[in-house]
């Protein structure tokens, strides 16, 4: 019998209901709300509003900058991009937990990065088009921006980019219990079943 994609989506949804995320010192059962998305919506209809989507470390403005970054690092397409996959929520949760030592860096660098595009592009980063955003980030990654201009404080723009890029990868490909990889979207993209059954070669 061929597997019914609709049934698969339902069983995946049931599975996700019993997964849990650590938030603010308590285990919250459930999963964060996913925004509308071509792929994920089609495969998991009838989603209910979940819990735990409020940011705990990032402000709304910072989260918006992070959302824009996450979509540059992992752009939307056939499968959700970084923003929709919950990369920002992952980073927010981890800045309050395992990655707490990076919190001050994010606070400074997100703002600095957003404003830093004004000199060359006359707009803040979040208002740039996709192509300009990518060009700007490519420059930052290559060390094209000096922290003596702008409000980067002691942080080096290229180092921030490198760390933030890695965190986006963790958020997109890691276990959803940490806040990202919403509905295991990256596993869907790679064609990896979430639930493994006993097999032999």
């Amino acid at each position: 019998m061929k597997p019914d994609p609709q049934n698969e989506a339902v069983s995946r949804r049931n599975f996700l209901k019993i997964s849990a995320i650590w938030a603010g010192g308590a285990w919250i059962v459930g999963y964060p709300v996913a925004r509308a998305s071509n792929h994920v919506t089609n495969s998991a209809p009838g989603r209910t509003q979940g819990q735990g989507t409020e940011y705990q470390v990032l402000t709304t403005d910072e989260a918006a900058i992070m959302d824009a970054l996450a979509d540059c690092i992992i752009p939307p397409g056939d499968y959700a991009g970084g923003r929709e996959a919950g990369v920002t929520l992952f980073i927010d949760r981890q800045l309050g937990r395992y990655l707490h030592s990076d919190k001050a860096m994010y606070k400074t660098c997100l703002a600095a990065l957003n404003k830093g595009s004004q000199a060359d592009y006359e707009k803040v980063f979040t208002r740039l088009g996709e192509e300009a955003q990518i060009r700007y980030l490519t420059d930052i990654e290559a060390g094209g921006y000096n922290n003596r201009t702008g409000n980067w404080g002691d942080y080096i723009p290229s180092s921030f980019f490198s760390t933030m890029r890695d965190h986006c990868m963790m958020g997109y490909y890691g276990h959803p219990k940490h806040g990202g990889n919403r509905e295991w979207v990256s596993y869907q993209m790679l064609g990896l079943p979430v639930e493994q059954v006993p097999m032999s070669p």
Binding site: C72, I74, P75, D78, I134, R165, M189, L190, G191
Partner: peptide, 16 residues
Amino acid sequence: PHWGRGHKDFQQENYK
């Protein structure tokens, strides 16, 4: 590429 569309395409095309 370690990020952007090139990253995502590589991941999707080559994981298996």
